[in-house]
Design a protein around this nucleic acid. Structure first.
Lengths: 210, 210
DNA sequence: ATCAAATATTTCTTATAGGAAACTTTTAGA
DNA sequence: TCTAAAAGTTTCCTATAAGAAATATTTGAT
């Protein structure tokens, strides 16, 4: 493990000058370079993924040219970037510096007929993700009136037991401890425990309205 | 597996008109024309507001050329367009019905000096959350050159071991198996294992942030 | 309908984006 | 160190974006 010599913290995150909207500075190049570096991709790799020439990528990253919209789209899909982010110049740091811990078992209980949810980190509201730890009490699809639907996406990781994930557009799939699942929660879905003891999972959901 | 009797499903989610992709087709031209017409602006007016030539605007609206990023920015500010809107095109229901499973240990390895990441559910791109399972190899703050920062929020759940979470604005906090943490990742942060064997966590991050 | 005036499109020119390949720099291995 | 390979940059060239001006089209007043 490389033991870097120096400091911690850098760039004190100067500008939270609210007013600043878009345009002007927006260092697209640096931005893209950061994204790519963070994924440990070489220009060659990025080139393959975006379908753009290495040279083109290099020039863009060095702010030596302004890519066409077409190219921006390729960048966005190829590098898996969120477009709005690209335009949001610098950091629209809302929610700066929030942090909260939930010790084991200290979440907010939220029991339903089919699941026993323990909401985590509820001290912070207005989050972009809603995490909870759930025990799946449902034992059959009949326990659900209908498949659940709500706009957004969900990620699920199995901590204990075995469960079957039913959904509107797919065959049911069985998940064991250590398996994970990501899905569009606008698609009807439901989880059912299939192990002797109820399955327990970590569930992270995006908030409704976006 | 108890393949229970049938469906439940309600409202068949009308608009999965197949064709509707994500952002390839995106008719930028028509989109812009709509916006402009809506405001009852003439090309001349739009030209003044954006600083672009009438002819250029005309060509863009008629999909006769792909504007540069620079021009897109001028369009966006000059025409007072809501960026996400511009790109989300039509029904914001892109990504309908996606689902992907990652079995235990089948994630994409992504080693760094300080963490051993296993990216989960990478089959789906352009997600609103990026989940991974990480082994924390760092044993001291010195293993980090500097605190990590990237716009967004992160959720963390400890699967095994013990770790200490360092951050820019808080006292270090110790986390054990079963504990969870939610924080603004724009705030400098770093995790360090403190148990005999490296701590393992589930980490979920919001995109974009590099 | 006819013709101005206003609006939109096309043409023409130049400046520059984007790709291929040459070149330079960095990295890793002996 | 030195050297070879990998990563990144620059050059050179063609295709095309963007502006100015000419042309065409629409609007609306009589």
């Amino acid at each position: 493990m490389p033991s870097k010599e120096t400091p911690r913290i850098v760039e004190p995150k100067a500008n939270i000058s609210g007013a600043e909207r878009t345009l002007e500075p927006l260092k697209l190049g640096t931005r893209l370079r950061d994204v790519r570096k963070n994924k440990n991709w070489t220009l060659e790799e990025a080139s393959k993924r975006t379908g753009l020439a290495r040279s083109t990528l290099s020039k863009i990253e060095n702010d030596q040219m302004s890519p066409t919209f077409e190219v921006v789209q390729k960048l966005v899909t190829g590098l898996e970037i969120d477009i709005p982010q690209l335009f949001t110049k610098g950091d629209l740091q809302t929610n700066v510096g929030r942090r909260t811990v939930t010790k084991k078992g200290d979440g907010k209980e939220h029991p339903t007929a089919t699941y026993q949810h323990e909401l985590l980190c509820t001290e912070i509201i207005n989050k972009r993700m809603i995490p909870f730890k759930s025990t799946i009490r449902a034992r059959s699809m009949d326990d659900f009136g209908e498949l659940v639907r709500h706009n957004g996406e969900e990620f699920l990781y199995v901590l204990e037991g075995e469960l079957t994930f039913y959904s509107e557009f797919y065959e049911p799939v069985s998940l064991n401890e250590g398996d994970s699942l990501y899905y569009d929660s606008g698609m009807g879905h439901a989880c059912v425990s299939t192990s002797p003891q109820d399955a327990v999972i970590i569930w992270v959901s995006t908030p409704h309205g976006y």
